[in-house]
Amino acid sequence: MNAMSSDPLFPQGGDRIAARKSGAVPRTGLGLVMRLELSESLRSRWFHFYSIVVVGLMLLLITTGISESRVLGFTGLSRLLVTYIQIAMAVLPLFIVVSTARSMVGDREAGNLEYMLSFPVTLRVWYWGRFLARLVLVLSPVLLALGLAAVYGLVRGHSVPWWHFGLYSGLVAALAACFLGIGFLVSSISRSTEVALGASLLIWLTLVALLDLLLLAILIQQHFIPEFVIGIALANPLQAFRTASMILFDPQLILLGPASYVILDHFGVTGYVAWAMAYPTALGLVLAALGYWRFSRTDLV
């Protein structure tokens, strides 16, 4: 057919391509997927809002002079960190789980996934590349906020508790990994953004409800065995984070009451902090792996 011969308009295109045929097979790597996800998220409104909230909270606490106040003998940066980390516990998981749960299912609904997955990228690279990029993204503003606090402490002449900074960063990273895993699992399972959003909110609310001392009190009142109640508390990543952040400035866990004996007897301070870092991280990775398993076995679009 005449139309199938080389077009005089574009005499070089086919030849140039043909010359490259012998080259290596192109493949989209983890770095490229991460870079794509990072730049995509850096442009998104959820990330801007999240960053403003996370960094803004720290600035707010600094400007209100909370580091100059004294509670239970704590003052300076330790006081600032304790307050910040308690507030972050309320904000961080909600932001992470809601924004993440909508991400992949939203891309699927919009048709972005159909196009982007037509490139030579393995599902493993695509999924875990996005996971790692999101982890970097959600941690960056928190680390920036903690860095701001350290700079503020140095400027004000406070002693900077670097050890606490390190431990708090680790706890936040573990919590972020956990809720990222939940978000990825929800996103992989859900068939619409509405379902993903509803499911992520429900999970967050459930974990917050199980955090409530009142709920635990009711459980005890209903004659559940104490081990069951304490088991629930230990299995709740939010509670693990909360207790570990308390134990760092209150090693006797006076604030926690009698339950502290169980924790201190079974774990000790170091053991519990290690648990609070390792367990949410492992849980997040397992849930994310489940999400990947589901993602790779169902229809992608």
């Binding site: 097979v25 493949r27 989209t28 159909e114 196009y115 982007m116 037509s118 030579p120 990228v121 599902l123």
Partner: peptide, 22 residues
């Protein structure tokens, strides 16, 4: 089902352009 090596040899234009934000 999905072979990235094979996909390296396939170019695709969908029916509806995706709303990519990039």
């Amino acid at each position: 089902r999905r072979d990235a090596g094979a996909l390296a040899r396939v170019a695709f234009v969908p029916q509806l352009p995706p709303p990519l934000r990039m």
